[in-house]
């Protein structure tokens, strides 16, 4: 399993050996239920217990904005901020020829169809700020250009609570390029 090394796996196994039977049974039950119930939303590709996820179903969400992310986990992170009120679109990956992932493996046609069906006015691309994420961002921006809608990417720059002295030059120069006017 990802991020679990040999020693951590041993510790977890030992913990389960010592744990009460009910606790282990509850864990097994939870894992099985998750596997049975959780699937990907037929609309946005995020995690859902139904065909359409609660976010896509929610009438209060702004249907004119779609935020594009790489993985379902990114949706949860953004949701935990409470800042974003629009819909999502999960690519389930990023462009990476080395891993054999090309545009056809990402749900980009589906994104285009959703944009047209929903009458979306803005697409916010929130892929990771590494070379693969950036290439994916550029690719999507190019693909969506003919639709004539607003395409933005989330800002990258100086982390909150840190100090300018500790930001590396690349982060700083990006922060300068993406500077915002104070209103």
């Amino acid at each position: 399993m990802p991020t679990i090394g040999k020693r951590t796996a041993q510790r977890l196994a030992l913990y389960l050996v010592k744990a009460p039977k009910e606790e282990v049974a509850a864990l097994v039950d939870a894992i099985v239920k998750m596997k049975e119930r959780v699937r990907f939303c037929s609309q946005c590709g995020s995690l859902s217990e139904d065909d359409v996820c609660p976010i896509c179903r929610d009438p209060k969400r702004d249907r004119s904005v779609i935020c594009v992310v790489e993985e379902p986990g990114n949706v949860m992170r953004i949701e935990s901020t409470g800042e974003y009120k629009g819909l999502y679109h999960v690519l389930h990956g990023r462009l990476s020829p080395l891993d054999g992932i090309g545009p056809e493996d990402l749900a980009i046609d589906k994104l285009e169809r959703r944009i047209e069906n929903l009458g979306v006015k803005e697409v916010i691309i929130a892929t990771n700020p590494n070379v693969e994420g950036e290439a994916t961002c550029n690719y999507i921006a190019q693909a969506l250009k003919p639709l004539g809608i607003k395409i933005t990417s989330i800002a990258t720059g100086v982390p909150i609570g840190s100090d300018l002295d500790f930001a590396d030059e690349m982060t700083l120069s990006r922060a300068f390029r993406g500077r915002a006017e104070i209103k």
Partner: peptide, 19 residues
Amino acid sequence: REYLRSLQRYVRVLDQRNK
């Protein structure tokens, strides 16, 4: 420092593009 960062990113792009 930014030169080193760019080099690392460049090598990654080069590998991807060569593939």
